[in-house]
C-alpha cells in the first residue's frame, strides 16, 4: 500500500490523469480522479461509465490517460472491468503475464452510471468478488446530459427534470444511500470521500487498491455548472458538505466495522451548505423554510446514526 504521507510528498507523484481534457473549469471530477489514480504505484486498468469524465477525457483523437482505459457504455463500467480482471487472472495463471508485478483494476462512474443505470452491473461485479475498486463520482444528477435528476439527487434540489416551479420545490425524494447498499454486498471495504479532504480520499483509495476483492468509494463531486456555484469554489463547497455533515466521511470494513474518518471541529448549519449553491436558492424563499428544517433534521439523524454505529463497533 502506498504511503500517502503529507502533501509535499504526495505532490511528487507523477500524475496519471493529465490536463488537456475537456471537463468544465473547476470540475471536481478530475480532482478526485487524480487523488485516486495517484494513490498507487502499481499498474492500473481503468474502466469508465459514460458521463462527463468519460466524454471529456477521451475526445478523439486525444486521451488524457497515462494508463490503459476502457469505456463501453453507460451501464456497464463494472462489468467491463470485471472482464478485464478475469483476463488478467487467466493470463497470469497461464504464464502470459509476469506474476510478480501487481496490477489494479479501477472503475469510475457518475451517480447516474452507478446509482441508477449501472447499478445492476456494479451489484453483479461486487457480488462476484472481482478484485477491483469502483469509484462513484457523485455529482447528484445527470450532469453530462444537462442536469437531470438521478436517484442521488437530494430533496429540494432543482434539476432540469425536478425543476422548482410555482408549485414545486424541486426534487421530492431523499437520495439513495448507495454506500450502505454496497457495504451490504459484502464488499470488504467501502468508504465515502470528498476532493477537499485530499489525504482522507487518497488514503482510502490506497487502502482500496490494497484490499483484495470489490471496493466501493463514493465521492461527492461538487458540480459548478449544475449546482450553480463559482468554479473557484469547488473545494469550498466540498468542505461545506463535510463540515455540515451533509456528506459525512466514513469507511466500513467487511460490512461490519464503521469508522468515521472526519469529524468537523465546528459542525456548521446545513443552510450554509445549501445557501452556497444556486440549485437550492428557492429553499430560502418564504414558504419553503420547512425544507431547510427537514434537511437539518435528516442530516443530524444520519450523523447520529453513524456515530452510534461507530461507538457500537458495528
Amino acid at each position: 500500500m502506498k504511503n500517502i504521507g503529507n502533501l509535499k510528498e504526495f505532490a511528487t507523484t507523477p500524475d496519471r490523469f493529465q490536463g488537456g481534457h475537456r471537463l468544465c473549469p473547476g470540475c471536481a471530477h478530475s480532482i478526485i480522479v487524480r487523488e485516486v489514480v495517484n494513490a498507487t504505484e502499481d499498474d492500473i486498468v481503468v474502466s469508465t461509465a459514460t458521463g462527463c469524465l468519460e466524454v471529456c477525457s477521451s475526445i478523439y483523437p486525444y486521451t488524457s490517460w497515462d494508463v490503459s482505459w476502457l469505456h463501453i457504455g453507460f451501464e456497464n463500467a463494472a462489468a467491463g472491468i470485471s472482464g478485464a480482471e478475469a483476463m488478467y487472472k487467466a493470463l497470469k495463471r497461464k504464464g502470459k503475464l509476469p506474476v510478480d508485478k501487481p496490477a489494479k483494476f479501477l472503475a469510475f462512474g457518475g451517480d447516474g452510471g452507478t446509482y441508477d443505470i449501472g447499478f445492476q452491473s456494479l451489484s453483479g461485479a461486487a457480488e462476484r468478488g472481482h478484485d477491483f475498486m469502483y469509484v462513484c463520482l457523485d455529482n447528484e444528477g445527470y450532469m453530462n446530459t444537462g442536469g437531470q435528476r438521478s436517484s442521488a439527487t437530494p430533496v429540494g434540489a432543482h434539476t432540469t427534470t425536478s425543476p422548482r416551479g410555482r408549485i414545486s420545490y424541486g426534487e421530492k425524494n431523499w437520495k439513495k444511500d448507495l454506500t450502505m447498499i454496497m457495504s451490504h454486498h459484502g464488499c470488504p471495504y467501502v468508504a465515502t470521500a470528498v476532493p477537499s479532504k485530499w489525504k482522507d480520499l487518497a488514503t482510502k483509495a490506497a487502502k482500496g487498491f490494497d484490499t483484495e476483492g470489490p471496493v466501493f468509494l463514493n465521492t461527492l463531486s461538487p458540480c459548478t455548472t449544475e449546482w450553480k456555484f463559482d468554479p473557484a469554489d469547488t473545494i469550498m463547497i466540498s468542505d461545506l458538505a463535510v463540515d455540515s455533515c451533509v456528506f459525512p466521511l466514513y469507511e466500513i470494513e467487511n460490512g461490519t466495522k464503521l469508522t468515521i474518518t472526519y469529524r468537523p471541529k465546528n459542525k456548521i448549519p446545513v443552510r450554509d451548505y445549501l445557501g452556497a449553491q444556486g440549485r437550492f436558492s428557492h429553499l430560502f424563499k418564504k414558504g419553503n423554510e420547512h425544507l431547510i428544517d427537514a434537511w437539518q433534521k435528516h442530516t443530524d439523524e444520519y450523523w447520529e446514526y453513524l456515530q452510534r454505529r461507530e461507538e457500537a463497533g458495528v
Partner: peptide, 26 residues
C-alpha cells in the same frame, strides 16, 4: 502543494527536491 492537488487540469509544474530532513518533496 494545495494548488497541485486541487487543480482539476493538472497544471502545476513541480520539481522534486530533497528537504532538510532528507525527505523528498515537491
Amino acid at each position: 502543494d494545495m494548488c497541485w492537488v486541487a487543480c482539476p487540469d493538472s497544471c502545476f509544474i513541480v520539481e522534486e527536491v530533497v528537504n532538510k530532513r532528507g525527505k523528498k518533496q515537491a
